[in-house]
Write a protein that binds this DNA or RNA. Sequence first.
DNA 1: AATGAATGAGGGTTCATTCAT
DNA 2: CATGAATGAACCCTCATTCAT
Lengths: 217, 217, 217, 217
Amino acid sequence: MAEEPRHDDKLARILRTAAAIFADKGYHEASIRDISRATGISLSGLYYYFRSKEELLFLIQDHCFGTVLDNLERLLEGVMDPHRRLRLLVENHLRFFVSNMKEMKVLSHEAGSLTGDYRKRVNEKKRRYTELCTATLQELRPASPIDLRVATFALFGMMNWIYNWYHADRDVPVAELAEDLSQLFLQGYLGDAGLVPAGAAERAPGEARPSIWRRTS
Amino acid sequence: MAEEPRHDDKLARILRTAAAIFADKGYHEASIRDISRATGISLSGLYYYFRSKEELLFLIQDHCFGTVLDNLERLLEGVMDPHRRLRLLVENHLRFFVSNMKEMKVLSHEAGSLTGDYRKRVNEKKRRYTELCTATLQELRPASPIDLRVATFALFGMMNWIYNWYHADRDVPVAELAEDLSQLFLQGYLGDAGLVPAGAAERAPGEARPSIWRRTS
Amino acid sequence: MAEEPRHDDKLARILRTAAAIFADKGYHEASIRDISRATGISLSGLYYYFRSKEELLFLIQDHCFGTVLDNLERLLEGVMDPHRRLRLLVENHLRFFVSNMKEMKVLSHEAGSLTGDYRKRVNEKKRRYTELCTATLQELRPASPIDLRVATFALFGMMNWIYNWYHADRDVPVAELAEDLSQLFLQGYLGDAGLVPAGAAERAPGEARPSIWRRTS
Amino acid sequence: MAEEPRHDDKLARILRTAAAIFADKGYHEASIRDISRATGISLSGLYYYFRSKEELLFLIQDHCFGTVLDNLERLLEGVMDPHRRLRLLVENHLRFFVSNMKEMKVLSHEAGSLTGDYRKRVNEKKRRYTELCTATLQELRPASPIDLRVATFALFGMMNWIYNWYHADRDVPVAELAEDLSQLFLQGYLGDAGLVPAGAAERAPGEARPSIWRRTS
DNA sequence: AATGAATGAGGGTTCATTCAT
DNA sequence: CATGAATGAACCCTCATTCAT
């Protein structure tokens, strides 16, 4: 007797599929029909799971960002050293980015595609995330000659841009990517304040990539 | 007797207007009707200036990238010091970015919206531009522990991301932006190789911002 | 211990609610989902009470018209004077109209929305009702210079149109409405045949308005 | 060489066709595709002539009501006798109603289908028309025992209801219809104030029915 | 007696594009 | 050079209805 998939699992599958399609064709170019085709669910049947195409985008972005944020906050619990905090932020961000590239591309590239309340809610999460980063940078080097906003968004730019060029199969592995970007940014931001010890927070080999959609039942 | 605007000027006006619209609404969400409305030229009248919407996007990206590239090549003529070359690249890039934010957003954000031959032609220019950067970085620190591709695209990410956050009126001026990003990246990339002399290539005060559409007849 | 509502009561509630919605938005613009929402019964749950949306409309119209017709026939029992018979018809019609405006609007406005057998069955009742009126008018003035059909439908037009303008709170009370319309029509139809004594069939004060849905168990 | 129909003529044809379809199936049940089929114009081609289905309904109602109102005002010019004025109103109303039954049915039956500004604009015309009638009735019998609003809408009810029953081929001719309704209403409203002279404003035989869409070049 | 999940058909509307003038 | 008029394809979404449970 086959297990019937639960409602939430089915929704998760739809979101995952839709994210891939949005990532490939772009949100506006993708059609609900594409998603219907890819999921095997009828066009109208999809509307049982979301109210509108925009809500679908919102659900993806919200879930995606929510996971990143939650995980980060869990990671940072009890960690006070700003150096280490930043390193964890970068690693968490990149690890998710590479493991869930499609979803993160949608998050990065389709930021402006939400409107109204949906936009506000996602932006609120973004603001929290950004502030967390800015505060850490501030603490890290209170009298930095580099503008804080510039530094913050330089870091996010470095990280978010990867959906434009990074190919897991052709490029360095994630750990090295994280290492390189961390070093690049920290050395740059701290100046002569010293180097970062490499490999600080590497995942054990064989450990699964963190998926945004995995149910943690 | 009023001067009749020449064909090229009119096209430039159309491209500028279209770029602004593409930047605001995104390429796929913008309609030719929007451009017709904004330019005051009839829907069908526009097709005298371009063959298709995609060609319009191509013309914008090509013109835009061409200008950046040309200017950079002119600037680099005779400059051999890789340190100085990189600094010029960053300055040129950022200056254009901030002066022609709408166009550069279209260039950055709508990279994937071109197809076929159009895409190939723009990508060719991008490749040249990227290689120019990679080569300079290579020369700058031949034995860098940081992967060259990572470094290159970290730099571009930092710079191209600015359309997502930079507001000319709320943020630091361009010169400082360029200074901060240069320092951030170079310090980061070079490690303990020393600091960059600030303000190396600043524009003389009063000099006009470089416009991508200005005719240099 | 709470009384479980009986099947018929629940159906009556559904019909009443649906009638209000059909009256407000029109039959075709109203959706079964609207009715589901308003009744608190699930979409599919409603289909236990009717086979199709059209049957729902039919049930409303049939019940509604049936009540009007039954009441009229009871009222007319034993009354032979055509003058008095017409007066009773008008009063009965208007009283129900104003007391059950939503339902009567559905009856008047959505006459053409039924098809096939449903339409036939309602039309049959309408024919009986109309003929009852026509016959009375004929008897009232056998040699009227006014065409009988014209007179009949002029009367119904006067009465049925009220859903387009009558507001119980801003207009004259029903009794006066009935009085005015009766007088207007009878004087018009009879010509110099004399006036109608006013207030002939008024309801006793305090007597409840007749509801179409009230169970008379 | 065939005459190309002018833009306005083509629009008029579309409106006429659409009115017939709206009358037959009702506004909400009719689809733009129905109109496309009936006019032979492609679905999207229709949108060159109106912005939305609702605007199409508005155009029909506005044009239709505008014509009735204009004609009435022209007819009433210089006529002071309220008796005669009312007679002209009724004749004008009924003549148009019967000659343009489809359009007038749309006007009567779909009054509530417009929203927002469209509705306001049509209602404004309706208010003027109604007031013109009310004022005449008031003048006709200043101390009528019948409520003015009741009288006004009784008249309109009588007249507008005809789309529900009148068949040009089975019923009395328009002239007689107008005659009967006028007499019915006037006798009713005036009471013993005397009879109306019959046939006051009959059209000469052979004279064309007034069409709402006829161009008066 | 009631519901969650699903569907086919069809709705109004917009789009890039064309072509005769 | 420029435009008014037109079109086919595709869009998102809603609908009444069903069926297993």
